[in-house]
Design a protein around this nucleic acid. Structure first.
Lengths: 218, 218
DNA sequence: GCGCAATCTGAGCGTGAGCTGAAGGCGAGT
DNA sequence: ACTCGCCTTCAGCTCACGCTCAGATTGCGC
């Protein structure tokens, strides 16, 4: 994930909020490196300020659209209507008007990624790293041994990190069952927890009546 | 959301049905203001009558497609096949033939929004962010733990933000009860307040004799 | 200010959602 | 055929949640 924002304080705040949520973030003060960065990091999403020195946000937006499949969330002065129109017609995936609450930005960024089905293959939640491709789970720099089912379950939770998923959704995503005994999920959640919690506090939280969330800290 | 319908009675009925369902609706009798409205309100969706004074529905459809990412649901005489074809090829997202049942329109509108991934699943009120889809509530950048019932209640209030909703409406929307003890609502409102107000001033306000509103300030 | 109705909220209770240890079953490896 | 590990089922337990109730509190009309 790439953040391009010339106001250093804002850029830093945004970056660290996104990192908090488990994204890997690069911060740039302008768009000079853009082509380079797109090639090097292949970001899944770019957070783009409209007002930038050199090429402005809209020019960069075009570059991104031409040369990458990344999602784009633009930061704009609130209610700057012409900006909004220009951005949407140019293909920004979403907008956040300044001033904004960080939580809103994070929520929108997550929503865009979800919409694009572009959850990155390695996900980080607190001190937990889940590499879906490699099938490796680490916590506090130690590898955690999971069984096949536990891994699929955790990978799914990681892909949905921060959002509550129901047992039914889990049964469908992990087992392919339409409708089944929820206890099956409970048992495996229990097993995953036991292993993860050998190395730190609870990450898989129960939300009674709704399901489970993978999330660091409350 | 924008409704363009010259028959005032129909337009009013449609608007209020959509508002009931939590959408923010503007109603226009013709398309003169369209460009302006698109810029000002950035509607996620436009409900468009085919027969209109001045520019007709198809002309307006083109304007919308050119200058906005809004979804379009067209209202047409039932079984006017040529109209249907014209509209769909011109890019309407769905059709509702007159006469129609309001519930059908609402259902189609919701379906189109969902398809476009445009359901505003996250609502912001002051420093509160409610992400209905993810089941997450944040305030002052901190996650707030709500129970299932509290979440449903708050999501409903958030969808209706700024509007006073009665206890009866809440009982219907959240519990599915037609008529029931209002104290049930009071108790859960109380619980939601306790949790939200740990992180800031009151957002759920009582309007004596009428109900509750979710609103910042005051 | 007074009285009444609307609303708030702490306490208590029953229920069922969720947790987990144990055991059965099944498949892979030896 | 035996072993071992994993998945699943089962059953008992626990406790958070949702609801009711009743006394406290607030706000409105007069």
């Amino acid at each position: 994930m790439l953040v391009i924002e010339d106001a250093e304080a804002i850029g830093a705040a945004v970056s660290s909020a996104l990192r908090e949520s488990g994204f890997e973030v690069q911060h740039r003060l302008d768009g000079r490196q853009l082509e380079n960065d797109l090639g090097r990091f292949r970001p899944d999403l770019v957070v783009l300020d409209v007002m930038l020195p050199g090429r402005d946000g809209f020019q960069l937006l075009e570059v991104i659209r031409r040369s990458s499949g990344a999602g784009v969330v633009m930061l704009t002065a609130r209610d700057a209507v012409p900006d909004r129109l220009r951005g949407l017609s140019g293909g920004a995936d979403d907008y956040v008007g300044k001033p904004f609450v960080l939580a809103e930005l994070v929520a929108r960024v997550s929503a865009v990624l979800r919409r694009l089905g572009r959850t990155p293959s390695t996900v980080q939640v607190g001190d937990l790293v889940v590499d879906a491709d490699a099938g490796v789970v680490m916590r506090a720099d130690q590898t955690i041994e999971l069984t096949a089912t536990e891994l699929r379950l955790l990978v799914y939770l990681a892909a949905q990190r921060g959002r509550v998923v129901s047992k039914t959704q889990i049964l469908t995503a992990v087992w392919g069952y339409e409708d089944y005994d929820p206890n099956l999920v409970e048992v495996h959640i229990s097993a995953v927890r036991r292993k993860l919690e050998e190395h730190g506090p609870r990450l898989v939280h129960t939300v009674r009546g709704l399901g489970y969330v993978l999330r660091a800290e409350e």
